[in-house]
Simulated assay, not measured.
Amino acid sequence: MSTITVERRVHVEAPPAAVLPHLADLTRWRSWSPWEGADPDLHREYTGDPGSVGATYAWSGNRKAGAGTMRVTEVDPSGVGIALDFTKPFRSSNVIRFDLTPSGTGTGPGTDVVWRMESPRTFMTRIFPLEKLVGPDFEKGLRQLKATVERG
């Protein structure tokens, strides 16, 4: 089965070590995730050691928020890997990767952050193109991540 890749990037004026915890610790996503606020009554459950491989986040909410789980599969200085499984509004298993590349393009040490999702090409992705569905969300999330990290 072929896959669809959605990818967005941002430059953060902070070293990779300052960005990494905001991505690896799923409890910290509440400060920057583009989907925060989609359901004010969202049910969340976290398991495992935050920021470590195997840590999980499960959510269940309204139609807009849907339901699913994220599990950290990789954490190293170059980035974070996450297995993302949706159960609502439709089932889908995806691979998320955040790549962190040191970059000195600003006034100090910086990081180029790439947020990439690979998803199987299915009947549903033909009806609802992922690029249009999640691309703008990734852009919003990366802007919010940048602001959160740069605020310290």
Rank of each mutant, 00 (worst) to 15 (best):
P34G: 12
V134L: 09
V80H: 00
R9K: 14
I82C: 05
G152T: 10
L130Q: 08
D137F: 09
G48D: 06
I127G: 09
P77F: 10
D99N: 13
G54Q: 13
S78G: 13
T105R: 15
G110R: 02
D112Y: 00
V114R: 02
T3L: 04
G141T: 05
E7D: 11
G48V: 04
P129W: 10
M124Y: 01
V10M: 01
Y46N: 07
G54P: 02
E74G: 03
V72A: 11
R143I: 01
Y46C: 03
G37T: 12
A147F: 02
P77L: 09
Q144H: 10
G68Y: 02
D76S: 10
P120S: 05
L145P: 03
L133E: 12
G106R: 06
S103I: 07
V113A: 07
K140C: 09
F128L: 14
G135Y: 02
A14F: 01
V149L: 06
R9G: 12
H43Y: 01
N94K: 02
T87A: 06
G37I: 00
G135H: 11
P136L: 13
A65K: 00
R63K: 13
R116P: 07
H11C: 11
R121P: 07
L20I: 06
T111S: 12
V53C: 08
Y46P: 09
T47N: 05
T27R: 11
Y46T: 05
R126T: 09
L133D: 11
S2V: 12
V75N: 03
D41M: 01
F86C: 05
I4D: 12
R97E: 10
M1S: 11
P136Q: 14
F128E: 09
P77K: 04
E118H: 07
K64P: 07
A58Q: 05
M70L: 10
T47C: 00
F138E: 07
G51M: 13
V149C: 04
L23F: 11
N94F: 03
Y57G: 01
A147D: 08
R116S: 08
V80M: 03
P77G: 07
P136F: 08
L26I: 05
W59V: 15
P34N: 11
L142A: 14
P16S: 14
R91I: 08
A55K: 02
T69A: 10
W59C: 15
F90E: 10
H11A: 09
R126F: 14
T27G: 06
T148Q: 11
V10R: 02
W115Q: 15
V149N: 02
G104P: 04
N62V: 00
G37R: 01
R126V: 15
V75A: 08
T105I: 15
T3V: 10
V53M: 06
P136S: 15
E7Q: 14
D112G: 06
V19T: 07
S119T: 14
A14S: 07
D39S: 09
E45R: 14
D39N: 07
W115D: 14
T107Q: 13
S52E: 14
T125D: 14
A55N: 07
P16D: 09
